[in-house]
Amino acid sequence: MSDLPVKVIHVESGKILTGTDAPKAGQLEAWLEMNPGYEVAPR
């Protein structure tokens, strides 16, 4: 599992989470399930 943060964006508000606020790569799927409305942000 990776500890690198994955940049995500809230589709409706446009809020972007990066760095320490962003979910870790190894926890991404579970985090997205618990935080509806967020998607992986385009690079």
Rank of each mutant, 00 (worst) to 15 (best):
M1P: 07
M1N: 15
M1G: 04
S2K: 15
D3C: 07
D3S: 07
L4V: 05
L4E: 15
L4A: 05
L4N: 15
L4W: 10
L4Q: 14
P5E: 15
P5Q: 15
P5K: 15
V6I: 13
V6H: 12
V6E: 09
V6K: 13
V6T: 13
V6M: 13
K7G: 07
K7H: 09
V8W: 01
V8Y: 03
V8T: 04
V8S: 07
V8N: 09
I9H: 04
I9D: 08
I9Y: 06
I9F: 03
I9K: 12
I9G: 09
I9W: 10
I9S: 05
H10F: 00
H10A: 03
H10Y: 00
V11I: 15
V11Y: 13
V11R: 14
E12P: 12
G14R: 00
K15N: 11
G19S: 14
D21G: 07
A22C: 10
A22N: 14
P23W: 00
P23F: 00
P23N: 05
K24L: 06
G26F: 12
G26D: 15
G26A: 10
Q27R: 05
Q27L: 04
Q27S: 09
L28V: 10
L28D: 07
L28H: 03
L28W: 00
E29Y: 03
E29L: 05
E29M: 03
E29C: 03
A30H: 11
A30E: 14
A30L: 07
W31D: 12
W31L: 04
L32E: 05
L32N: 03
L32W: 00
L32T: 01
L32P: 01
L32F: 03
L32V: 05
E33M: 07
E33F: 02
E33Y: 05
E33N: 08
M34R: 13
M34Q: 14
N35A: 01
N35F: 00
N35K: 01
N35M: 13
P36L: 01
P36M: 00
P36D: 07
G37Y: 02
G37P: 02
G37E: 06
G37S: 04
G37L: 01
E39T: 10
E39P: 00
V40M: 06
V40T: 10
V40L: 09
V40K: 08
V40E: 09
A41K: 04
A41M: 14
A41D: 05
A41R: 07
A41L: 13
A41Y: 13
A41E: 10
P42E: 14
P42F: 02
P42A: 11
P42I: 09
P42L: 04
R43A: 13
R43T: 13
R43D: 15
R43H: 15
R43E: 14
